[in-house]
Amino acid sequence: MAAIHFIDGEKGGVGKSLFARVMVQYCIDNKVLYELVEADRSNPDVGAFYPDNHKTAVFSESERKAYEADEIFDLALENSVIVNLPAQVYPAVTDWIERNQILEISGKNKVKIHKWFVCSGGYDSLQLFMQSLERFEKKIKHIFVRNFGLCDDWKHIDENQELQELIKTYKVPVIDFPKFSYRERNILDAKRINFSEAKNYKDLGILGRQRLHRFLKQAFEEIEKAKIWNPPAASITPPSDKVDTANSNGKVATKK
């Protein structure tokens, strides 16, 4: 069954784009058919990393632009669709869902809708998640993504009784998105290198590529914990950094 995967978080700076990039790479590495829709017009950075493999859409409460997101549902009839949402788009997305009766027709067309809500651990981020969860109840499957790159202490979340009751009531999977080291991320962002290209990017160095592999491995394992995707076969492979025998100068050469 195909699905629409909204990468949400509502607030800016909570890590939506990085998580969306990882989700795309998860599909690539696991040979899962997908469509990427870049819905962030102001900062289309996910589409920039996969320039030949994405479409664009916009969510708007304006009547003139109200139909520009319709292609997302059409695409979902064939494949799973990953939608990178911009910040502060909750009213427009909700309007699109309710005005078009998306929840009703998705059931008839066997299209599931998931919302991967990336949270920074901040009060506003948490309130927005609970707002979305209560608004759509069990009609949209929410996945709570705790971004450890922005917050490494989630005790206040674990002790939030209101949140924990909602998670229990709506059976929300909770996953931990690992921190991606600043050095490797800065290099990839500056060069607009996606994760597939980065696996063999010499400037990262052997240890940098190893840290990248470890990050992806941990992130993929967390995504699988949500039990939303059903990849046919995992194909995650570590960087290939082998050491040759001594060369003609008597030195050990390293393949990169």
Score class of each variant (00 low, 15 high):
7 I>K: 03
173 P>V: 09
22 V>A: 02
50 Y>S: 06
241 D>M: 12
130 M>G: 01
103 L>A: 06
209 R>M: 02
70 D>C: 10
229 W>T: 11
139 K>R: 15
246 A>R: 05
143 I>L: 13
162 E>C: 07
88 Q>M: 12
52 D>Q: 10
221 E>Y: 12
144 F>T: 01
199 K>F: 11
73 F>M: 05
112 K>E: 07
107 G>C: 05
143 I>D: 01
77 L>D: 01
70 D>Q: 14
105 I>A: 01
162 E>H: 10
190 A>C: 09
180 F>V: 02
154 W>K: 00
66 A>P: 00
252 V>I: 15
151 C>L: 06
119 C>P: 07
85 L>Y: 04
38 E>H: 05
34 Y>L: 01
152 D>F: 04
131 Q>I: 14
56 T>E: 10
228 I>P: 07
196 S>C: 13
100 N>I: 02
39 A>M: 05
40 D>V: 08
194 N>F: 05
115 K>D: 15
236 I>G: 10
170 Y>A: 11
132 S>A: 15
172 V>N: 06
194 N>W: 06
89 V>D: 04
36 L>I: 00
238 P>M: 08
154 W>E: 01
107 G>V: 07
164 Q>F: 08
198 A>F: 04
198 A>D: 02
163 L>A: 02
157 I>Q: 03
88 Q>P: 08
221 E>D: 15
169 T>W: 10
173 P>R: 10
209 R>A: 00
71 E>S: 15
118 V>H: 00
76 A>S: 08
137 E>L: 15
133 L>P: 00
160 N>E: 03
44 P>F: 09
99 R>W: 00
167 I>Q: 05
148 F>N: 09
47 G>Y: 09
96 W>F: 06
201 Y>K: 07
164 Q>T: 08
4 I>L: 00
164 Q>N: 12
84 N>I: 02
73 F>I: 04
63 E>W: 10
240 S>H: 13
193 I>V: 07
226 A>Q: 08
150 L>R: 05
64 R>Q: 12
219 A>P: 00
41 R>P: 14
213 H>C: 07
75 L>M: 09
34 Y>Q: 04
214 R>H: 15
192 R>V: 11
148 F>E: 04
62 S>A: 15
238 P>V: 12
236 I>K: 12
